[in-house]
């Protein structure tokens, strides 16, 4: 039992990171039905920004997280502007073009980081002394508390933003009927940019948290994390914000439980096995609405 509780704690911490990235996937999909595959790389850039701030400016934990979020926000806006907006404007570009452009943006960003930093893995300097607390037989580290706490805070903030602000309301309207929303005076380009910015900020925060937790930052770290977060978004029901959180936590738990069951060689396979299963059995995901095509 204690063992199970322990794995739950570990799974929640890992799952929080996936959930933060998955939120970006799901929000962008909800609004323009596009998968922004570059979120994994934005997460990687977040980790490197945090690392850079700590190494060169001796930034503390909070500055590192805020700085990384600010930088990835700008990066997300640039990616949207350069890789997606021109395709949205062009009449000839279909959905497939946007998807390929997304993959291209993703490869570009990871390669850029290899050029800037080199392919080596860098450890994250110790920002504060890690400690373990024992809770009902399971031990939870300060790092895990940090990850779960910061993630929960950001998710609650996002929920309040989407539910109670004018911009959030406009985003929800846009996700239901973009043309009608535009005719009500909602600036769709601006809303799409804000959506990219929010998703990128969350991914940037996740990057710093992951860098601290795993004590490892490298240019290709975004690929696997991004794909697993995508699986999490699909599991939860792509387009659904609570779904992304539930999906992220479940994928994290599944991965940790798999490792606990001595299947660590298969660690990366669990997320994708779940993805395939969901697509076969319930493509709309756990909390997603089934899509009815209007005739």
């Amino acid at each position: 039992m204690a063992q199970f509780l322990q794995q739950m704690v570990n799974g929640l911490a890992l799952g929080s990171i996936y959930a933060l990235i998955a939120l970006g996937y799901t929000m962008v999909y909800g609004i323009i039905a596009l998968i922004n595959f570059a979120y994994g790389e934005i997460y990687m850039f977040g980790a490197f920004t945090g690392l850079f701030l700590v190494l060169t400016w001796k930034a503390n934990l909070y500055l590192a997280i805020f700085g990384a979020m600010a930088f990835t926000t700008v990066l997300g806006l640039v990616v949207e502007r350069v890789a997606y907006r021109p395709l949205r404007r062009s009449r000839n570009a279909g959905r497939l073009s946007a998807l390929i452009s997304a993959i291209g943006a993703s490869i570009f960003l990871s390669t850029l980081m290899v050029l800037l930093h080199g392919p080596a893995t860098t450890g994250f300097p110790t920002l504060f002394q890690n400690r373990n607390f024992v809770l009902g037989g399971a031990s939870i580290s300060l790092y895990q508390i940090l990850i779960i706490g910061v993630s929960a805070l950001l998710m609650v903030g996002l929920d309040l933003f989407v539910r109670y602000t004018k911009t959030g309301r406009a985003m929800r309207a846009l996700s239901q009927d973009a043309d009608a929303a535009a005719l009500m005076g909602v600036n769709t380009d601006l809303m799409i940019a804000i959506t990219f910015a929010i998703g990128s900020a969350l991914a940037g925060a996740a990057g710093v948290l992951a860098g601290i937790y795993f004590n490892a930052v490298q240019p290709y770290m975004g690929l696997m994390a991004g794909l697993k977060a995508f699986a999490a978004a699909v599991l939860g029901g792509i387009g659904s914000i609570p779904g992304a959180v539930v999906g992220g936590l479940l994928i994290g738990l599944a991965e940790i439980m798999g490792v606990a069951a001595k299947l660590s060689d298969w660690k990366d396979a669990f997320a994708f096995a779940i993805l395939i299963l969901v697509l076969l059995v319930k493509p709309s995901g756990l909390l997603g609405r089934s899509i009815i095509k209007k005739v």
Binding site: K166, R169, A170, R172, A173, Q176, D177, D179, A180, A181, M184, G185, V186
Partner: peptide, 18 residues
């Protein structure tokens, strides 16, 4: 073309967006 999953109040508030 209403925003079907929004409340009546929210639908009207979107109309006031501009």
């Amino acid at each position: 073309r209403l925003f079907s999953s929004l409340s009546l109040m929210e639908n009207v508030l979107i109309g006031a967006h501009s």
